[in-house]
Structures are given as C-alpha cells and as structure tokens.
Simulated assay, not measured.
Amino acid sequence: MTKLPKKKRFEVQEGETLDDCLDRMKVEGYQVVRRVEKPLFQEIQKDGKQTFQPIGQQVIFEGRRIDS
C-alpha cells in the first residue's frame, strides 16, 4: 500500500466549485487546515506604461491526512 504524504495542496481547478475541491480532498483522505487566495493579474501596456489589471484569484487548500 502506498503511503500518503502528511500534507498536500489542492488547487481549485477551472470549472470546479469550492465544494467540488473539498469533496475531492475528502475522497483522497485529506481535511482542510488552511485556505490561501492569490490574486491573478494581467500585464497591460497602455501609452507606453506597464500596468497590471486584476483578472481573478487562485484558491488553494492545504490538506492534512485524515488518520483512520
């Protein structure tokens, strides 16, 4: 039997809800211990100036193995 790592990160995929990701974690044998949100930006060149525009966010859950 393969031993699961104690901690693992799960990124919410495109088209996946938060609940879907949490269910995927549970199926793999992990429970949430931390949630991280990172902003996503797009670089824009306007009038010779470089600016950044927010286009969304990336949600990552850190999971800890559920010990049976």
Rank of each mutant, 00 (worst) to 15 (best):
P39E: 14
P39K: 14
L40N: 07
L40S: 07
L40E: 11
L40P: 00
F41G: 01
F41H: 02
F41R: 02
Q42R: 14
Q42G: 02
Q42W: 05
E43G: 04
E43T: 14
E43R: 12
E43A: 10
E43S: 07
E43V: 13
I44K: 14
I44S: 08
I44R: 14
I44L: 15
I44Q: 13
I44G: 08
I44P: 09
Q45T: 07
Q45D: 08
Q45V: 12
Q45W: 10
Q45P: 05
K46C: 05
K46D: 02
K46M: 08
K46V: 12
D47M: 09
D47S: 09
D47Q: 08
D47A: 11
G48Y: 14
G48A: 13
G48T: 13
G48M: 12
G48D: 12
K49S: 11
K49M: 12
Q50C: 15
Q50I: 15
Q50M: 15
Q50R: 15
Q50G: 13
Q50D: 14
Q50F: 14
T51H: 15
T51G: 15
T51K: 15
F52R: 01
F52G: 00
F52E: 06
F52N: 01
Q53F: 12
Q53E: 14
Q53A: 07
Q53S: 08
P54S: 05
P54E: 11
P54C: 05
P54M: 11
P54N: 01
P54V: 08
P54T: 05
I55M: 04
I55G: 03
I55V: 11
I55E: 05
I55K: 07
G56I: 02
G56Q: 05
G56A: 07
G56L: 04
G56K: 06
G56M: 03
G56S: 07
Q57T: 08
Q57H: 09
Q58R: 14
Q58F: 07
Q58A: 09
V59K: 11
V59Y: 13
V59T: 15
V59N: 11
I60D: 04
I60E: 06
I60M: 10
I60R: 07
I60H: 08
F61H: 01
F61T: 00
F61W: 01
F61Q: 00
F61I: 00
E62R: 01
E62L: 03
G63R: 01
G63A: 02
R64H: 04
R64M: 10
R64E: 14
R64F: 06
R64Q: 09
R64Y: 05
R65W: 02
R65G: 01
R65D: 00
R65I: 03
R65A: 03
R65K: 06
R65V: 05
R65L: 06
I66G: 02
I66Y: 01
I66Q: 06
I66W: 02
D67F: 03
D67K: 10
D67I: 06
D67W: 04
D67C: 06
D67Q: 12
D67H: 10
D67R: 11
S68R: 14
S68C: 06
S68G: 11
